[in-house]
Design a protein around this nucleic acid. Structure first.
Length: 289
DNA sequence: AACTCGGGGAC
DNA sequence: GTCCCAGAGTT
C-alpha cells in the first residue's frame, strides 16, 4: 500500500468524528440520506436534521409515503430544497425499482434521483464497504496539496484529478473504503481550505505543497464568489421560509417582503415549476401536498 | 463548459 | 463583507 494511504488511514483511526451515519447500526438508506444532505452543506448543520429525519422516516418506503409539505418542512434550512424533492423521488425509485433496498450496483445508484458521481461512489464505500473512487471537495484539496503540490484544485473537477484519485485508491474493498473516509476526514479537519493545520497533519513531512514552500493559489483570480444579495436564490429562500412557516395558504401580498415585484413573480413561478410550491384556487401559495 | 440552485458560520 | 461547505441537473 502507498505510504500516503497508510499514514492517512492510521491518522483516521484516532481522529475520526463520531457521526451517526457512521455508527455500527447504520443502514444503507441512512448513508444515502446523509450523502444527499451533505451535498454542499456542512456536517454540523446536517447532523440534527438527519437524526430527526431518520427517526421519522427510517426506510425508503416511509419517505416515499410522506407528503411533500412534511418533507420540505423537515428539510428546514439545509438549503437547496430541490434536494429534498429528489430524495423523496429517490425513495420512490428505490421502492419501485429495487424492492425498497438501496442498490449496490454503481450504475443503479447513479440512476437514482439526486445521486451523481460522488454520491454513488460514497454509498458504495460507506454503506457497502466496497472499493470506489470517492472524490469530494475535501479529497480534491488533499490530493492537490499532498500530491500535486498546489494550494487548491482548479475551479472545476478535471479528468486529470479523477485519474489521480483513481490511482490512489487501494485495491481491496475494506482498505479502499477506509481510505475514502480517511481522505475526506483529513480535508475536513486538517487540510482545510482557509487555514490548514499542517502541524497536525500526518502528511506534513511529505506534502508536495509544503515541500514547495506553500505556493499561492494559481486560480485565485478566476474564483468568483457567488453573489447572494438580491439574487433569485435569496428571494426563493425567503419565499420557502415563509411557506414552511405558514399554517395556511399565503397570499402573494404577504410575500412582498421577499423581493421586488417582478423578481418575486419570477421566483414564485420558478418554485411552482420546480415542484416546491403550488397555488390553491384562490391563487394563494402553499407547500405541495 | 457554464449556469443555477440556499443558508449559515468562521474569518 | 468574503469564503466555503461530503454536488447534481440542465442547457
Amino acid at each position: 500500500m502507498q505510504e500516503l494511504v497508510e499514514r492517512v488511514t492510521a491518522w483516521f483511526g484516532d481522529a475520526a468524528r463520531d457521526l451517526p451515519w457512521r455508527a455500527a447500526d447504520r443502514t444503507p438508506w441512512g448513508v444515502l440520506v446523509s450523502e444527499v444532505m451533505l451535498q454542499q452543506t456542512p456536517v454540523v448543520r446536517v447532523e440534527p436534521v438527519w437524526r430527526e429525519w431518520m427517526r421519522r422516516w427510517p426506510t425508503p418506503a416511509d419517505l416515499a409515503a410522506a407528503p411533500t409539505a412534511d418533507v420540505l418542512r423537515a428539510w428546514g434550512r439545509l438549503g437547496y430544497p430541490r434536494r429534498a424533492l429528489r430524495l423523496a423521488d429517490c425513495a420512490r425509485a428505490v421502492v419501485e425499482r429495487h424492492d425498497g433496498e438501496v442498490p449496490r450496483d454503481e450504475d443503479a445508484l447513479r440512476a437514482l434521483p439526486g445521486v451523481g458521481e460522488y454520491t454513488a461512489a460514497a454509498v458504495r464505500a460507506f454503506a457497502f464497504g466496497r472499493r470506489a473512487v470517492v472524490v469530494d471537495t475535501n479529497v480534491r484539496r488533499v490530493q492537490a496539496r499532498a500530491v500535486t503540490g498546489v494550494a487548491l484544485p482548479a475551479p472545476s473537477y478535471t479528468a486529470a484529478e479523477r485519474r489521480l484519485a483513481a490511482s490512489l485508491v487501494p485495491d481491496d474493498d475494506a482498505t479502499a473504503a477506509r481510505w475514502a473516509a480517511a481522505s475526506m476526514e483529513l480535508g475536513a479537519l486538517v487540510c482545510t481550505a482557509r487555514v490548514p493545520h499542517c502541524d497536525d497533519c500526518p502528511l506534513r513531512t511529505t506534502c508536495a505543497w509544503r515541500l514547495a514552500g506553500f505556493p499561492a493559489d494559481e486560480h485565485a483570480a478566476r474564483r468568483r464568489t457567488q453573489a447572494w444579495e438580491g439574487t433569485d436564490r435569496q428571494v426563493r429562500g425567503r419565499v420557502m421560509a415563509a411557506l414552511r412557516g405558514a399554517e395556511s395558504p399565503v397570499h402573494r401580498a404577504l410575500l412582498a417582503d421577499a423581493g421586488p415585484p417582478d423578481q418575486l413573480d419570477r421566483c414564485l413561478a420558478g418554485l411552482v415549476e420546480d415542484g416546491l410550491a403550488e397555488t390553491d384556487d384562490a391563487g394563494r401559495y402553499l407547500l405541495p401536498a
